[in-house]
């Protein structure tokens, strides 16, 4: 598989259960080393030059599928402070770094002295994100970041990923949710049984999947509706934007008169 991910873009990796999404994500910060091929981060081939793994993992932050797998401190503040403390950040600088990371992750400041295991699933997700953001990574890899989050949590997380991307981070989310991937990413990579079947902009990917369906990935309702319109001769790109669909229908109605 050959894939390039740029800074300042939001890429979604989608695929069915067991398609290799999480395995691929773990190659991005050298948690796994490929048996063949190479992974290059900002010019450094991590498969050959494994000397600075610490630096690499600081550069590429990974948030696991279940954030509680990463927790070990007694308070949320200590949890977030762990990485910067390890690099010698102390005192006021450490507090500032922790507070900035917590703010970026949308964490409720009143929770900072609580045990990370005692907060809700959505807040745990934010703690895990804040503890990775405290490393000030250039790339952020999130494995199923929205699983178990409520509607508000999902909206906030998507907004956060978009903001981080706009700040210049390369953001990669692993998801089985094709609807969210098509609606929120700059580029989408689709995996099937460990192989990359298509990588491109959302509309391009939707066109490919319409012609070549992938097991376990169901085309989202908007795109299925557009495919139905095309069968009636109404041509429209496979968009996730409801207003484009409505505008097209309005145009067709005007033409009919």
């Amino acid at each position: 598989m050959s894939v390039t991910i740029e800074r300042g873009e939001l890429v979604s990796i989608v695929g069915h259960t067991g398609s290799g999404k999480s395995t691929l994500a773990q190659h991005l910060n050298a948690l796994l080393i490929p048996q063949s091929g190479s992974v290059t981060v900002d010019g450094t081939d991590v498969t050959k030059d494994a000397k600075d793994l610490r630096g690499l993992r600081r550069k590429v932050g990974l948030v696991f599928q279940y954030p509680e797998q990463q927790f070990f401190a007694d308070t949320i503040r200590d949890e977030i402070a762990f990485a910067p403390q390890n690099w010698g950040v102390r005192g006021r600088d450490l507090d500032d770094c922790v507070d900035a990371a917590a703010r970026s992750a949308g964490l409720d400041p009143s929770l900072m002295e609580m045990n990370p295991f005692a907060v809700s699933g959505g807040q745990k997700r934010r703690v895990a994100l804040a503890s990775v953001l405290s490393m000030k990574p250039d790339y952020l890899v999130l494995d199923e970041p929205t699983a178990g989050l409520d509607a508000q949590g999902i909206r906030e997380l998507i907004r956060l990923m978009t903001e981080l991307r706009a700040k210049g981070l390369g953001v990669v989310q692993v998801t089985h949710d094709l609807e969210s991937a098509l609606a929120n990413s700059g580029r989408v990579l689709v995996l099937e049984n460990g192989l990359g079947v298509v990588y491109g902009e959302p509309e391009q990917v939707a066109e490919h999947l319409l012609l070549n369906p992938v097991e376990g990935l169901v085309m989202p309702p908007f795109q299925r509706f557009i495919a139905g319109l095309r069968e009636r001769g109404i041509d429209l790109p496979l968009t996730s934007d409801i207003s484009s669909i409505i505008d097209k229908l309005e145009e067709m109605r005007r033409c009919a008169f």
């Binding site: 409520d150 509607a151 508000q152 999902i154 609807e179 989202p220 309702p221 908007f222 299925r224 509706f225 139905g228 409801i242 669909i245 409505i246 229908l249 309005e250 109605r253």
Partner: peptide, 29 residues
Amino acid sequence: NFAEPQELILYRELLARGFIRQGTVPTVL
């Protein structure tokens, strides 16, 4: 404040503009 499924968003928008009638089954088909 639950997430509204795409089918229901489509249903609401199409109904509001008179593209479908009240009572239409809110599925794509």
